[in-house]
Structures are given as structure tokens and as C-alpha cells.
């Protein structure tokens, strides 16, 4: 397998790690609270993409046993999808809670900028 093809096959893994890093960078580095929430979601999406990629093999079928079976004899791993579902539930509740806290803070101080929040507190 040549180098370009190897890169192409691993594209989703690289995309997942890139998304994770972008999200982490925004979550920790961006001063705006809404952007931080977006970063959190991008980071989590990266992890989910990674998990789904683990479970997929080329030409594998959906993991449903039917009389004929899959042509290639390969099935995608359903466990990682279940993990991703649970992960999404956690991500959604964290997002909802963070956003509601953000709204409360905005009502109190009228700003979404963490640096200005720090200054307001002193």
C-alpha cells in the first residue's frame, strides 16, 4: 500500500484526533463561554468519530444476522455505537447544563467573556 492510500484509509482517525485537538484548544483557550461550549462539543465529536471508526471494517455489513449473512462475512462492531450513544447522552446533558449556567452568568454580569468575568469579581 503506497503512502497516499495509507493516509486515505486512516483519514477518519486523523480527522478524529484533529477534531479532538481543535475542540480542546477552543475549550481551554477561547474566552467566550458559548465558543467554549462549541469547543466541548467538537472535542466530544472527535472522540465519537474515533469510536465509530474503530468498529468499522472495510466492506463490513450492519450487525444484523440475516439468513444470507454479509457478503464479505464481516460485520461492524455494534458495541462502539452503543458506547457513542451513551457518550452523546452525557455530552448533551453537559452542554445543556453549561449553557444554562452561561445564561445565568450572563443575566448576572451581562458578559460572556471569561476574562471580563474575572475582572468583575475583583
Amino acid at each position: 500500500m503506497g503512502m497516499p492510500l495509507a493516509l486515505f484509509v486512516r483519514l477518519n482517525y486523523m480527522a478524529a484526533i484533529t477534531l479532538f485537538l481543535i475542540g480542546l484548544h477552543v475549550l481551554l483557550g477561547h474566552p467566550n463561554l458559548i465558543k467554549k461550549v462549541m469547543g466541548m462539543n467538537i472535542m466530544e465529536t472527535g472522540v465519537f468519530l474515533f469510536l465509530v471508526s474503530i468498529g468499522y471494517a472495510r466492506h463490513s455489513a450492519a450487525p444484523i444476522m440475516s439468513p444470507g449473512g454479509a457478503e464479505s462475512g464481516l460485520y461492524a462492531n455494534p458495541l462502539v455505537s452503543a458506547i457513542v450513544l451513551t457518550g452523546i447522552v452525557i455530552a448533551v446533558s453537559t452542554t445543556a447544563y453549561t449553557l444554562s449556567l452561561t445564561i445565568k452568568l450572563y443575566e448576572h454580569c451581562g458578559t460572556l467573556d471569561v476574562n471580563r468575568l474575572e475582572r468583575l469579581r475583583r
Binding site: L27, Y97, T98, L105
Partner: peptide, 12 residues
């Protein structure tokens, strides 16, 4: 919020 953001990082 500070706790939540850092624990989201940890969770990820």
C-alpha cells in the same frame, strides 16, 4: 462553570 469546563476536558 470552571469545574464543569475542566471536568469536560477530563471526561473527553
Amino acid at each position: 462553570l470552571k469545574y464543569l469546563i475542566l471536568s469536560a476536558v477530563a471526561g473527553g
